[in-house]
Design a protein around this nucleic acid. Structure first.
Lengths: 206, 206
DNA sequence: TTACTTACTTACCGACCGTTAAGTAAGTAA
DNA sequence: TTACTTACTTAACGGTCGGTAAGTAAGTAA
């Protein structure tokens, strides 16, 4: 029989370790900034061992993206558990920023043109971003509905401005090393985007 | 004497060509995505010829940044020629977005960690970004001064949100290939950021 | 015990990286 | 003409890249 305990390294376990380590490296240094040797070294295994588990660098990157984007989607879904629209959006902003801070360069790196074999990764990222935007937009619409701004800016652009703002903050923050204050900034973003004259939308949620 | 006309390639002329070509390439593919061979090939000269004019890749990149950032600063300075604060800011936003579109990956690429010899480039970029932020902030303050928001969000964060928003839009736009509509978007950004109940701040400027 | 699979390792491949050494044709200065 | 400088070229360097071929120790199945 297959005695799990005596096996020192199971296929699945090692794959998981590789992805976890690669995720940290790619998030920090970007796709071009991380070599297969870097990954292997961090794992204390040989470079070719990586090719036992994956077909190549591209596949590893793809699996890392799978994991990360799944986590982001989950995080967004959870924000919908909050009670009011405002609280939902507030939490979504906070979690998005938190996420973006951890995975700094993972996606950003891919905006750079890549060699042909990596086009499908690009496609995959674009798809994922579209999905994310689509999941945010209804929420923006809700919060946004009864404001006067709705006559000037449609909710799609508004969503775009919101995600843009968040991405931009993350970009800026990766230059200067000040961390975004997740206690305050989400509220302030909401004030800026959605407040009219009076703006006492939100405290923190418990 | 020095007969300029018979000389086929003058030092300065060639340097200028190299920088111009390198600028286009770095803007499109980022620092790591462009090799010295790429640059040389586009110029129809040999790779070592580049080392006659520059000490290395780093210096070329630095000169490209010099040129580009000077252009951006000039463009910002020109925005201050407009008459009202609103028009100034409107034009600044438009020009910033236009600029960012052209130089997509030039600066973004540098958010990725670089090898030690390139640290100074990073430093240089950070400095430049700080300068730019400082030049925008007073304008934000002006437009922002008599709005209620000023009590909730300070002008520094507001500036940060503005540049963040613009950078984020550019980032997003580099994923999907839709161009930003420079006729409309700047006004809409201003509406979102600065409008209170009534928002008829701006048409276009002639 | 024997045959086979799993999970690696060592050694190496060709391509390309940024960079340098050495040579050279053309132009300039005396 | 001679000596020198300018603006390159060809050839090659050591290093690293992503990827592969071949061998191997340990575990499993009969």
């Amino acid at each position: 029989m297959f005695t799990e305990s005596k096996r020192r390294n199971t296929m699945q376990g090692t794959r998981g370790h590789i992805i976890a380590v690669a995720r940290r490296l790619f998030s920090e240094y970007g796709y071009l900034g991380v070599s297969m040797s870097d990954i292997a070294e961090k794992l204390n295994i040989s470079k070719p061992a990586l090719y036992y588990h994956f077909t190549g660098k591209t596949e590893i990157y793809e699996k890392v993206l799978d994991e990360v984007l799944a986590a982001l989607k989950l995080s967004i879904a959870e924000a919908f558990n909050e009670k009011t629209s405002e609280k939902k959006l507030h939490r979504l902003i906070r979690d998005y920023l938190r996420f973006g801070f951890r995975e700094k360069n993972l996606i950003k790196a891919l905006t750079l043109k890549l060699s042909p074999p990596d086009r499908r990764i690009r496609k995959y990222i674009i798809q994922s971003r579209e999905q994310i935007a689509r999941s945010i937009q209804p929420l923006v619409e809700e919060v946004f509905a009864n404001k006067n701004l709705a006559r000037i800016v449609d909710s799609k652009l508004m969503t775009s401005l919101l995600t843009g703002m968040m991405d931009g903050l993350l970009l800026e923050q990766s230059f200067f090393n000040e961390r975004i204050d997740l206690e305050k900034v989400p509220s302030q973003i909401m004030s800026v985007l959605f407040s009219q004259n009076e703006s006492r939308i939100l405290k923190q949620e418990g």
